[in-house]
C-alpha cells in the first residue's frame, strides 16, 4: 500500500528560505538547495517550494533556485507561487519541478488546471487552496491570504479536481505557523469530497498532529517551521508516526 508522505515546505523569497506566521512576519531560514538536500537525506518523501517573493526580481530568481534544488534532489519537487499560465508551469518543469501548484490563478479561472493537465499531465497539476474558517464553513483566500475570494473551500476543491487537479494542497490560514495542529474538520470535509490525494498544511507542531491529519483523511502532511527550526528531523517524525500506526517509508 502507498505510504503516507511527510513533505517539508520551503517558502522561498529572493532566493532564501523564509517562514512566517499566518503568511506574514517572514524570517530567514537558510539556503534552499542546502536545506532541500538535508531534508531528503533525513527522510523527506517529497518537497514543496513556494515562491513568496514580493518583487519581480525575486520571482525571476525562483527558476534558478528550482534548478539548484533539482541538481541535488532525487525525490519529487512541487513548485508553486505566482503561477498564472501554462507557460509559467512549463518553465518551472523545465527548470526541474515535477509538479506545479496553482493558487490564485486557479480561483480566478479553473481552466488553467485543465490546460496544465492536458499539456503536462494531471499528476503535474496541484491546486493549492488557502482556506480560512468562516461562520458556515471555510472561505478561499487568494493573493497570499490577502483577499477573500468569497468561495466555499470544499466546493472549490471539487471544482478544481473536476477541472484537472491531480492533488490538493490544503492550507489552513487560521493554523499556518501557529503550531496548534492542522484544521481537522477542513481536512475531513475536503478529503471526503475529492478522490485525489490531499496534502494537509498549516499548524503542525509534532508527529501527533500529523497522525491526526492522516486519520482525518490526509494522504500527505506538509510542515515547515518544525523542520526549519530543527525541532525534529524527518526520520524522527516518521518513526513516531509508525508508532502511531501510520504506514510510512522508513
Amino acid at each position: 500500500m502507498v505510504t503516507k508522505r511527510v513533505i517539508p515546505c520551503l517558502d522561498v523569497a529572493e532566493g532564501r528560505v523564509v517562514k512566517g506566521v499566518r503568511f506574514t512576519s517572514l524570517r530567514d531560514c537558510g539556503d534552499p538547495a542546502a536545506l532541500a538536500e538535508e531534508y531528503m537525506n533525513s527522510g523527506a518523501d517529497e518537497l514543496v517550494m513556494l515562491d513568496v517573493s514580493a518583487t519581480d526580481e525575486g520571482r525571476a530568481t525562483a527558476l534558478e533556485t528550482v534548478a539548484a534544488i533539482r541538481e541535488r534532489l532525487a525525490i519529487p519537487l512541487t513548485v508553486g507561487g505566482g503561477v498564472r499560465s501554462v507557460s509559467d508551469a512549463e518553465r518551472l518543469l523545465e527548470a526541474g519541478a515535477d509538479k506545479v501548484s496553482v493558487n490564485s490563478a486557479a480561483v480566478a479561472d479553473p481552466a488553467i488546471l485543465t490546460e496544465i493537465a492536458d499539456r503536462l499531465g494531471r499528476q503535474c497539476a496541484v491546486v493549492a487552496i488557502d482556506a480560512r474558517k468562516c461562520h458556515d464553513g471555510w472561505t478561499v483566500l487568494v493573493r497570499s491570504g490577502k483577499d477573500d475570494a468569497r468561495r466555499d473551500a470544499v466546493a472549490f476543491a471539487v471544482q478544481a479536481v473536476e477541472a484537472g487537479a491531480g492533488e490538493v494542497l490544503l492550507t489552513s490560514w487560521d493554523r499556518d505557523g501557529t503550531g496548534e495542529g492542522y484544521d481537522l474538520d477542513l481536512l475531513r470535509a475536503v478529503s471526503r469530497a475529492v478522490h485525489v490525494p490531499v496534502i494537509a498544511s498549516g499548524g503542525a507542531k509534532d508527529a501527533r498532529h500529523m497522525a491526526e491529519a492522516f486519520l482525518a483523511g490526509a494522504d500527505a502532511v506538509l510542515a515547515a517551521s518544525i523542520f526549519h527550526d530543527r525541532e525534529a528531523r524527518v526520520w524522527d517524525i516518521k518513526d513516531e508516526l509508525a508508532g502511531f500506526g501510520v504506514t510510512v517509508r522508513l
Binding site: V2, R5, D45, Q123, G166, V196, P197, D219, A220, R249
Partner: peptide
C-alpha cells in the same frame, strides 16, 4: 482507491 496513485509504494 485514490487516483492518481501518488507516493512511495513497495
Amino acid at each position: 482507491v485514490r487516483s492518481p496513485h501518488f507516493g512511495w509504494n513497495r
